[in-house]
């Protein structure tokens, strides 16, 4: 691939990702911090894990369904918000953990 094409591709990727924001949610003390967020469709949510044990964020919301799987201490997991609406994200291990999402 020639350099020009590479540069073009790179700038395209940058341009696309420039609009989408990444929202950082920490999992700390068995709670999501913060516990509610407003995002735009296409944005990403990155889950940190500051606890010493595993968490597992998921939602059964039909439009935005995802499941991070077991996420061990000090790792990150990122998901993309697909459709507008309000939904809640829970931890599969600790159902007292709740994150309310408003996607616009």
């Amino acid at each position: 691939m020639n350099t020009l094409l590479k540069t073009l591709l790179l700038s395209l990727t940058l341009a696309l990702s420039a609009n989408a924001a990444d929202h950082i949610i920490d999992q700390k003390g068995k709670t999501f911090v913060p516990s509610s967020i407003t995002v735009k469709v296409g944005d990403t949510i990155t889950f940190k894990n500051s606890d010493a044990f595993a968490h597992n964020a998921y939602t059964d919301d039909e439009a935005n369904e995802f499941d991070t799987g077991m996420q061990s201490s000090s790792t990150n997991k990122t998901v993309t918000v697909k459709e507008a609406g309000t939904f809640s994200i829970e931890c599969a291990i600790h159902p007292n953990m709740l994150l309310e999402v408003t996607a616009e």
Binding site: K30, A92, I93, H94, P95, N96
Partner: peptide, 12 residues
């Protein structure tokens, strides 16, 4: 087995 009720409601 955490907190007042000695359970954090988690599943294991």
């Amino acid at each position: 087995h955490d907190g007042f009720n000695f359970s954090d409601g988690s599943f294991h």
